[in-house]
Design a protein around this nucleic acid. Structure first.
Lengths: 129, 129
DNA sequence: TCGAACCCTCACATTGATGTGAAGGTCAAG
DNA sequence: CTTGACCTTCACATCAATGTGAGGGTTCGA
């Protein structure tokens, strides 16, 4: 598929798809005329990238961890340098911290919403009746 | 405490503490000479802010949700407009998505690390012996 | 063959979170 | 009373992610 379709299917501006490529997050084939040609696979990949970006990871880190997340893992063993391992462990831990922080605050929001709702209901029904 | 101590205790540059104030995330008292004067409470608050920023939330959103997360919740009921509720619900759901994305990818990293480690061990012991 | 709808690269603009430093006030210790 | 370590505001700089548009090529249908 070409960039327009990938853009629509992932809800990502073309500009950003080119940017992700420039950052080394995706590598697109080119057809004869120079147009980018994406495999079906990139729909998921782009969503994954966007999710990680949205969760606060910079492209630099995403570029490092993406190759380790592919399914046929056998290929990726050789390039596992000690520094890479250390980086991954560090990022894994940072992600866990992020998760905890998000859960804590999300639950607080949820709790607040519950409290507001159960408190508002009588008022609402008063107004409604 | 003054800004220097808060900065050290939270690992946050003074510049950013002033920035968070400018963004309405924290409101500091002023002592007679104009210096910012922070309560003990702000140590936790700043950590919370940093965690949320690190998790990808912009200050604009953090400013909206912070007031709902304070303990004496009774005070905050009145200002719960329908739009605010909708915003909070939306953010709560976005945070859940972020959590899921982070967990998915973190677990993939962890799995990769496990795989690499169990595969490397024999080689390491060979080199070590 | 022309126009619409794609695609390309290049480049400058913006926004949010930060870094950095200037110019100056406060205060405690020497 | 001066020096050093704080603090103040203001302003300009940077970086990453993103917006926007110019200038130009490709493809396809009318």
């Amino acid at each position: 598929m070409r960039i327009g379709e990938l853009s629509e299917r992932t809800g990502t501006p073309r500009r950003l798809l080119r940017y992700y490529e420039e950052q080394g997050l995706i590598v697109a084939d080119r057809s004869a005329n120079g147009y980018r040609d994406y495999d079906e696979f990139f729909v998921d990949r782009v969503m994954q990238i966007r999710g990680l970006l949205d969760a606060g990871l910079p492209t630099r880190i995403i570029r490092q961890i993406l190759p380790c997340l592919d399914k046929p893992r056998i290929i990726h063993f050789p390039d596992a340098t000690p520094e890479m391992i250390a980086t991954l462990e560090h990022e894994r831990d940072r992600m866990t911290e992020r998760v905890n922080c998000l859960i804590r605050n999300r639950d607080a929001i949820a709790e607040y919403l519950d409290a507001v709702r159960t408190d508002d209901r009588p008022l609402e029904s008063t107004t409604a009746s």
